[in-house]
Design a protein around this nucleic acid. Structure first.
Ligand SMILES: Nc1ncnc2c1ncn2[C@@H]1O[C@H](COP(=O)(O)OP(=O)(O)OP(=O)(O)O)[C@@H](O)[C@H]1O
Length: 696
DNA sequence: TCGTCCTCAACGAAC
DNA sequence: TTGAGGACGA
């Protein structure tokens, strides 16, 4: 292997060698930002003799962290067991909090709530406050609490700024929700970030310790940091100021969960002495792909100015396929993939199909199945969110944290033993009055009901044997002792499938079998809680990859299909009203195009089934923004030239004004009915005689 | 309390 | 189209 530095270009080398002080690498897609970051870590360790323990590298996914750890080890030709602190923000916070959460009254074994449990806790909070779940959507409340935390607003801060009925409700629920979480010894995803910031800000000595440890900090994908992550980074780097961040504001696509690309654009204000590196050579894509991507992003107003060029030839044209319907769209993709495979012996692993919403994957899956092509879907309904998996995990969570009432409530009646909603509520109330966790409470009851006794017996048995069992044997024990296995076996086909899923869970747990039982469980539960969709992408089998545009960030493939390139789908209908959201859709398109090494396809359909009825959407504005000379338009019947100057009546996407409902956007037209999304009144079906609707 | 049938809203992206 | 949640009877 050659000297690693030699494989970098001069600009990348500058970024790697500037060891001291703040450094910003602001550069476009595929310019080698992540590569520079990886090499910098290796350089710090190998050439500058800095201990890995003093370095903290933050990546966007656990998978990226794992790959980086491997690459660094290869670069420094070492298999040392010294800990490399390469992780995501969330798992970094979780690890530190295991040691420091006591400052906030949490024990080290706190539970990490997943999205599902969060919602359950919100509902419980609302029930306690006697709020009507039908009048106030718990999901909306959860989302607001989450945003507040990402902005570092605790319940007091939120209460003091809450205005309007809804926000005041949220403020109340927020308080009750935090109360529930504390009693459960549980933190949600957002707490992991916010609580660590609270500790660092309130305990200067603790902060100083970590500042001293992490003298060198590196952050990838800095454009998608939220306020909490930004603050955390600033706090940790404040002492030594050796902060290296890389990112691309054009690729900021997570504003809806609090990310703010101004964090990267303001870096030079936060650190006036920052050394700024621009990388302009792209090593991933052809010139046509870069030009197309640039043409799309150029329409955005809020963005930095950047250049990107490549040594590569212009390459393939962008192909735009107009399908007659969703099925035709899928068939086209299959035909193209087979054709490429015939021509170039390309592996299926080199193909990715990207869509805007998870719901679009189903139709594509069916096409792939029919064609007999192996595929993998990344994301969507996640493995760890399946009922049987969550049930198994709940047993394990309760074992790890007896205060986890949410876990207990999930499993106390599994298999059904007559503990229903009423009984559960009573137990909860009694435990609450006794100021105890529910498990603690029911294990110390004087005369428990037989059903409760039975459950306690199951848990006692598991508790007693668990110290001597490795993780996979522990799962076996849970499965048999609880009676869950018997229950599923009695269920027939569906139970079989569920048992298969549990078997898959077991094979994951086997990877932790070499760890001591005492620590294996908590490590496993933490990793499972923080696993991300991309983490599940492995190219072990040769298969076509299907995923959302968001999930594709940071990845690269030879052939990229962007499907459903239609107004209302992409850009999504919910974004059409808001200029900033539209810019984010555009950035998403930029991300999609720039994933490709060789060839990009856009596909759209004249009509497609949505909720079981046909909808017609015009093709995406992003297609219209592609340079004509780089684009090849194909229809079902064969290549055609672009139709110019389409006649415009009222079409989906048009902005309109309604006499009664005010401004809105046309979503679709079916026969005599137009569906319009109104800014104030939501989605309405109206007679299409146009009497009440005027173009804006 | 629990399972089944039925209605009706959902689908925006995820650590 | 699918899935969650309510109504209902056992
Ligand atoms: N100096 C270089 N010489 C050759 N290839 C390079 C060089 N730098 C990066 N590459 C390659 O270019 C591709 C993109 O690199 P990398 O993922 O680091 O870019 P990036 O800027 O992080 O991209 P993105 O912003 O799209 O995530 C990778 O395949 C990488 O190996």
């Amino acid at each position: 292997m050659s000297d690693p530095i030699a494989s970098l270009n001069p600009e990348q080398i500058k970024a790697v060698h500037r060891v001291k002080g703040p450094v910003l690498v602001l550069a476009g897609a595929g310019s080698g930002k992540t590569k520079a970051l990886t090499h910098r870590v290796a350089y710090l360790i190998q050439t500058k003799q800095i201990s890995p323990a003093n370095i903290l590298a933050i990546t966007f996914t656990n998978k990226a962290a794992g790959e980086m750890r491997e690459r660094i080890q290869r670069l420094i030709r070492s298999r040392s067991d010294k800990p490399f602190n390469v992780s995501t923000f969330h798992s970094f916070c979780a690890k530190v909090l295991r040691r420091e959460a006591h400052h906030l009254g949490y024990a080290a074994n706190f539970t990490i709530l997943d999205a599902d449990d969060q919602l359950t806790a919100v509902k419980q909070a609302m029930e306690m406050l006697q709020l009507d779940i039908k009048r106030t959507a718990p999901e909306a409340v959860r989302a607001h609490i989450s945003s507040a935390k990402n902005e570092l607003m605790d319940e007091d801060a939120y209460t003091s700024v809450a205005s309007g009925t809804f926000q005041q409700i949220v403020a109340k629920v927020y308080r009750a929700y935090q109360d529930i979480l504390r009693r459960n010894q549980a933190m949600d995803f957002d707490d992991l970030l916010m609580n660590l910031v609270i500790i660092f800000q309130g305990q200067p000595k603790v902060l100083a310790r970590y500042q001293e440890q992490f003298k060198y900090i590196l952050v990838d994908e800095y454009q998608d940091t939220n306020t909490a992550q930004y603050r955390l980074t600033s706090l940790l780097a404040a002492k030594h100021r050796n902060l290296f961040v890389v990112g691309d504001d054009w690729q900021s696509i997570y504003s809806w969960r609090g990310a703010n690309f101004r964090n990267i654009l303001n870096f030079h204000n936060d650190y006036p002495d920052a050394y700024i590196v621009k990388l302009e050579q792209n090593y991933r894509s052809t010139q046509n792909i870069l030009d197309a991507a640039h043409a799309v992003i150029a329409h955005n107003k809020n963005r930095s100015d950047k250049k990107l060029w490549t040594n590569q030839a212009s390459g393939e044209l962008i192909t735009v396929y107009e399908a007659s319907n969703g099925k035709d769209e899928g068939d086209f993709i299959v035909r193209e993939i087979l054709a490429w495979r015939g021509r170039t012996r390309a592996q299926l692993n080199n193909f990715v199909v990207l869509y805007r919403t998870n719901a679009q994957s189903r139709a594509l899956e069916e096409t792939m199945l029919r064609a007999g092509l192996p595929y993998r879907v990344i994301g969507g309904v996640r493995f760890y969110e399946r009922r049987e998996i969550k049930d198994m995990l709940a047993f394990l969570k309760l074992l790890a944290n007896p205060d986890d009432n949410l876990a207990l409530q999930r499993i106390i009646n599994l298999p059904a033993r007559g503990i229903g909603k009423k009984t559960l509520q009573a137990l909860e109330q009694e435990a609450y009055s006794a100021d105890k966790g529910m498990y603690d409470y029911i294990t110390h009851l004087n005369n428990p009901t037989p059903a409760v006794q039975e459950f306690v017996g199951v848990m006692r048995q598991i508790e007693r044997k668990s110290p001597r069992l490795n993780l996979s044997r522990l799962l076996d024990l849970v499965l048999t002792a609880s009676g869950y296995q018997t229950m599923l076996k009695a269920e027939g086909i569906e139970g079989e499938t569920r048992l298969e899923n549990i078997a898959e869970l077991k094979s994951v747990m086997e990877k932790y079998d070499h760890l001591a039982p005492a620590e294996a469980l908590s490590i496993f539960l933490e990793e499972v809680a923080l696993i991300s969709d991309t983490d599940n992408l492995t190219l072990a089998d040769d298969a076509i990859t299907l995923m959302t545009l968001h999930t594709a960030k940071g990845l690269e493939f030879d052939y990229v299909f962007m499907v459903g390139a239609e107004e209302n789908l992409f850009p999504h209908s919910r974004s059409l009203m808001d200029a900033e959201e539209l810019e984010e859709e555009r950035r998403l398109c930029y991300v999609g195009i720039t994933r490709a090494r060789q060839k990009v396809y856009f596909t759209h359909a004249e009509e497609r089934l949505i909720y079981g009825n046909l909808q017609a959407n015009p093709r995406s504005r992003f297609i219209d923004d592609l340079p004509e000379e780089l684009t090849e338009f194909v229809r079902r019947s064969g290549p055609v030239r672009q139709t110019s100057g389409q006649e415009r009546r009222l079409q989906p996407g048009d902005k309109v004004i309604h006499r009664q409902f005010g401004p809105g956007v046309i979503i679709s037209q079916t026969g005599d009915i137009v569906t319009v999304a109104f800014v104030k009144y939501g989605i309405k079906d109206l007679a299409a005689d146009l009497a009440d609707i005027k173009p804006k």
